[in-house]
């Protein structure tokens, strides 16, 4: 027995350690994804029998005006969310100074990260409320009437993204603050000796060292933008008349409210394909420098 273990432990031990995680990942992620793709070829109401329809769900999706609205909104989310890493970095640079009271300030900036996104959504819904919201009060001071942001089909997505950006910026801020704490003092010292300061120091000495962190911040932001759901659900339920719906929300709405699980699965599959493409690109870019250094 002992000999058997000794002979095989070089592969047995890691396998045993990985097994629970692999099983969980296999069931919850892989199996569920495969099943979703499988369901997308059926007409299914979630309870009754499933009927094979081939690619019909995807054909309907291609003709569904709502799908293009959702796709457009996902692009808006993605575009605006790209502001989160630079804003987070700017704030991190600002907060990364040894001044009295900075710890308190930092913690104030972390607050949105601690709040559940539902809370953030509700708070912003109140801010935007055209009758008693903070926004209408501010407009009121200048004698103007605030636009009803959540009722305007062209502005509503932007209004929701701004609410979602708040915690996202805080998240990037945390990542960058951690990165700034790990800067190599020697390199900064060497830079100083060579006369670098201000923007030159930032661009050529600090930022290159934040490369990894920036990459994580970017990836988390892109995925956060693509899977956005909770804010839309809380603030607008996809409305008015579907104009703030994103793919994830449309999938939920079609499956749960319209009893179209096959169609919902088709939307999920499309979203999955978009994310997979991004993740593939991300892994390729992330892995390359690691191989170089190895």
């Amino acid at each position: 027995m002992m000999r058997l273990w000794r002979r095989h432990r070089h592969w047995l031990a890691p396998t045993l350690f990985i097994l629970p995680g692999a099983l969980l990942f296999g069931i919850v992620i892989i199996l569920a994804s495969v099943q979703t793709i499988w369901v997308s070829f059926f007409d299914w109401d979630g309870v009754g029998p499933m009927q094979w329809v081939g690619l019909a769900n995807y054909e309907q999706l291609a003709e569904d005006p709502q799908f293009y609205v959702s796709l457009k909104n996902n692009v808006i989310w993605l575009g605006m969310f790209m502001l989160a890493p630079p804003l987070g970095l700017a704030l991190a640079l600002l907060l990364n100074q040894a001044i009295a009271g900075m710890k308190f300030l930092k913690s104030m900036f972390f607050v949105p990260l601690v709040l559940a996104s539902v809370t953030v959504g509700v708070v912003f819904t109140w801010v935007y409320d055209p009758t008693f919201g903070l926004l209408s009060l501010i407009y009121g001071w200048f004698g103007a009437t605030a636009p009803a942001l959540l009722s305007d089909e062209h502005l509503v997505s932007f209004a929701v993204v701004i609410a979602a950006l708040w915690p996202q910026v805080a998240f990037c801020l945390v990542l960058f603050l951690a990165g700034l704490n790990n800067l190599n003092e020697d390199l900064i010292g060497a830079g100083r000796v060579d006369g670098a300061r201000g923007s030159a120091m930032l661009l050529h000495v600090v930022l290159p060292q934040l490369r990894e962190v920036s990459f994580i911040a970017l990836a988390v932001t892109v995925i956060g933008a693509l899977r956005s759901f909770d804010m839309v659900a809380v603030m607008t339920s996809g409305g008015p008349f579907g104009s703030s719906t994103v793919l994830a929300y449309q999938m939920y709405e079609q499956s749960i409210f319209s009893y179209r699980f096959g169609y919902g699965a088709a939307i999920a599959t499309v979203l999955f394909a978009i994310m997979a493409a991004f993740i593939a690109w991300y892994l390729r870019t992330l892995l390359r420098p690691e191989q170089e250094t190895a």
Binding site: Y128, D129, P130, T131, A148, L150, S151, F241
Partner: peptide, 10 residues
């Protein structure tokens, strides 16, 4: 204008 303005917000 019978109905509440911006009724989709409330």
């Amino acid at each position: 204008d019978l109905f509440t303005p911006n009724h989709t917000s409330s």
